[in-house]
C-alpha cells in the first residue's frame, strides 16, 4: 500500500534520513521508533511531502507521490501531531470538518460525518460547539484523531500524538486508537520514542538510528531478536516485561484441571502485566475465568517463565 524506495533527505549536507526503504501493507499499524533526531519525524513528513525527499520515492497504492499536487495529496492523508495543532478559533465540529470543507462536501454530509466521528472517538455530542481551549488534553487529541479521519483517508500519519499527555490519559488514548483501528482498519504510520507504546500499538515496529532503518518487524521479533547492540540497548533490559503488553492472561494460563477454585479470579482478557503484578504482590495463584465467569484455567508466577 505504501512503499518508501531508497528515501533520503539531506539538510545542509547532513542526512536526516538516509536510504530508507520500507513497505507498509494496507491496514497495518506501522510504528517508527528511535531516539531524538533519528529521522523518524522527517520520514513521516516525507510521506505527505511536508518535506520533499532529496532522493528516492514514495509510492502510494503504486502512484509516485511526487506526481501529485502536494495539497491534494495531504487532503487524502490524515495527519495527527503532538499537541494536536487544533485550530483554536474553530469549534470542535468545525475543526473536524476542515478537510471535508476543503474538499467541497455539502453541509449536510459534513454534519453527518462530524457526528459519526465524534461517536467513533467517543466524544460527547455536546462538545461539538465548544472551542478546543475548553477541552481536556485527552479530549483535544480525540478531536485531533477525528479530524484526521474526517475525509476517510486510507492512510493516517501520527507524529508522537500522545507524548504530551499524562500517563493515564495516554493509556486511554492508546486503547481508544486500537479500538478505532479495529473498527476502521486504516494504514497507520505512528511515530513515537516510547518503546512501551510501540509494543502496545504496533503491528510492526521500525527502529531507526541516525536516519537509517536498523530493524523492522513484528514487536515480538524486535524484542526477542534485536539485530545489533544498538537495537538491544534501545529495546532495553525490560524487553521481556514489554512483551507482556501485547498479551493477555489467556496466552499464559494453564488449562488442565483441577482449578484452584478458592483463589481470586481474573478474566482471561486481563492484560498479562496486571496478572503478573498481582502474583508479584504475593498471590501464589489466580483462577482464570471465561466470559460467563466459568473457570477456564489458572495462572501462577512460573507460567510466565515458560515459552
Amino acid at each position: 500500500m505504501i512503499r518508501l524506495e531508497a528515501l533520503s533527505r539531506h539538510f545542509d549536507g547532513h542526512a536526516a534520513v538516509e536510504d530508507v526503504s520500507l513497505e507498509i501493507s494496507g491496514g497495518t499499524l506501522q510504528v517508527l521508533i528511535g531516539p531524538s533526531g533519528c529521522g523518524k519525524s522527517t520520514l513521516l513528513r516525507l510521506i505527505n511531502r511536508l518535506i520533499a525527499p532529496t532522493t528516492g520515492r514514495v509510492l502510494l497504492d503504486g502512484v509516485d507521490t511526487a506526481t501529485l499536487a502536494p495539497e491534494a495529496l495531504r487532503r487524502r492523508i490524515g495527519y495527527v501531531i503532538q499537541g494536536t495543532g487544533l485550530f483554536p478559533h474553530l469549534t470542535v465540529a468545525e475543526n473536524i470538518a476542515v478537510v471535508p470543507r476543503l474538499l467541497g462536501w455539502p453541509k449536510a454530509a459534513r454534519r453527518q460525518r462530524v457526528e459519526a466521528l465524534m461517536e467513533l472517538v467517543r466524544l460527547e455530542p455536546a462538545l461539538a460547539t465548544r472551542y478546543p481551549a475548553a477541552l481536556s488534553g485527552g479530549q483535544q487529541q480525540r478531536v485531533g484523531i477525528a479530524r484526521a479521519l474526517a475525509a476517510d483517508p486510507a492512510l493516517l500519519l501520527m507524529d508522537e500524538p500522545f507524548s504530551a499527555l499524562d500517563p493515564v490519559t495516554r493509556r486511554q488514548l492508546q486503547a481508544a486508537l486500537l479500538d478505532i483501528q479495529q473498527r476502521v482498519r486504516k494504514t497507520i504510520v505512528f511515530v513515537t520514542h516510547d518503546m512501551e507504546e510501540a509494543v502496545r500499538l504496533g503491528d510492526r515496529i521500525a527502529l531507526m538510528q541516525d536516519g537509517r532503518l536498523v530493524q523492522n518487524g513484528p514487536p515480538d521479533a524486535l524484542l526477542r531478536h534485536p539485530v545489533n547492540a544498538f537495537a538491544a540497548a534501545f529495546v532495553g533490559e525490560e524487553r521481556a516485561l514489554m512483551r507482556l503488553a501485547r498479551h493477555s492472561v489467556a496466552d499464559f494460563m494453564r488449562t488442565e484441571p483441577p482449578f484452584p477454585l478458592a483463589a481470586p479470579a481474573v478474566s482471561a482478557n486481563l492484560p498479562a502485566r496486571q496478572a503478573l503484578s498481582r502474583l508479584l504482590d504475593g498471590q501464589p495463584v489466580l483462577l482464570v475465568t471465561g466470559p460467563s465467569g466459568e473457570a477456564v484455567g489458572q495462572i501462577a508466577l512460573q507460567d510466565f517463565a515458560q515459552e
Binding site: P70, R75, Q82, G85, P88, V98, L102, L157
Partner: peptide, 22 residues
C-alpha cells in the same frame, strides 16, 4: 503557533487558504 501551522499544512492548506482560514 507552529503546531497549528504544521497541522494546517498537513491537511492541505497552503498559501492564501492558510492565510485566510488560519
Amino acid at each position: 503557533s507552529p503546531a497549528v501551522r504544521e497541522a494546517a499544512r498537513g491537511m492541505g492548506l497552503e498559501g492564501f487558504d492558510l492565510f485566510r482560514q488560519v
